[in-house]
């Protein structure tokens, strides 16, 4: 029996293929939608191409999650330094507040200040995404064995060298796990930005809900779900690459 190439056995490949096929080939499914929803016309969302929705959605999430990751790691590093340890409860409290604010409320509050479109969405996603990364990064940095830190200082590493060469690499898997959760959530949450004019896969969903067009909702929802799953799988791959040697 012929063995399959290993790459074909990877679910990542199949999810990616399905996502790309739907992204570019959605119009080909028009007959199917017409059959399922005989009273709805048109059946394929056409106000913007799905690819342009994807690029805009990806841009918003990448910017918000990237900024959240950078700020969250900086906060975690600060909260675990000898001089910043007193601020640790404050840091976690602030990021928890960011998490408990519903993103919809942040959007409503941000629109008067920042106007409609992508910018208030960015702010909401950024605030919402901080907590999982901060929590994981603090746990990861505090998980560095005291003996390792003691030996490193005893050999003459400066505190910067300790951070860059020892603490951050050892905390990297935990930090990445936080970024993975945060980003996956952000992909789903970004869709509500479409209620205030941001272009995302939420745009067909909310257009469909407003215009009673169920095919639009299905198109947007299936793409955003696949996008989130695919991203999660890519992060899982990265985590395996970064995992400590075993």
């Amino acid at each position: 029996m012929r063995r399959w190439p290993r790459a074909l056995a990877s679910p990542l490949l199949w999810v990616a293929a399905l996502f790309i096929a739907l992204l570019f080939g959605m119009p080909a499914l028009a007959p199917l939608f017409r059959l399922a929803f005989p009273t709805v016309r048109p059946v394929i969302f056409d106000r913007a191409s799905f690819f342009s929705l994807f690029l805009s959605h990806l841009g918003i999430v990448a910017a918000a999650s990237g900024a959240a990751a950078a700020i969250a790691v900086a906060l975690a590093v600060f909260a675990t330094r000898p001089g910043g340890r007193d601020f640790r409860p404050l840091v976690t409290a602030l990021t928890t507040v960011g998490q408990t604010f519903p993103p919809a409320a942040v959007l409503a509050l941000a629109v008067p200040a920042l106007g409609f479109g992508a910018r208030p969405t960015l702010v909401a996603l950024f605030l919402y995404g901080l907590l999982p990364i901060v929590e994981n990064a603090i746990a990861g940095l505090e998980g560095v064995p005291p003996a390792v830190r003691n030996a490193a200082l005893g050999m003459g590493l400066s505190s910067w060298q300790l951070l860059a060469a020892v603490e951050l690499p050892l905390a990297a898997p935990a930090i990445l796990a936080g970024v993975r959760v945060s980003t996956t959530i952000a992909i789903g949450t970004a869709t509500i930005g479409s209620t205030i004019g941001a272009l995302t896969f939420g745009t067909p969903i909310f257009d469909g809900l407003a215009g009673n067009n169920l095919p639009y909702v299905i198109e947007g929802a299936s793409l955003v779900a696949l996008f989130a799953i695919l991203t999660d799988m890519i992060f899982a791959r990265l985590e395996r690459l970064l995992a400590p040697p075993h």
Binding site: P145, A147, V148, R149, N150, A151, A152, L153, G154, M155, G156, L157, S158, V166, P169, L170, P244, P245
Partner: peptide, 28 residues
Amino acid sequence: EVLRRRIGYAIQSVGLFPHWRVGDNIAT
């Protein structure tokens, strides 16, 4: 830091860097 690099230091729990190979640990 200068002082410590001149003085060898070994401890009970060893504190080897788990993400570095033996050679890199010794070369610190």
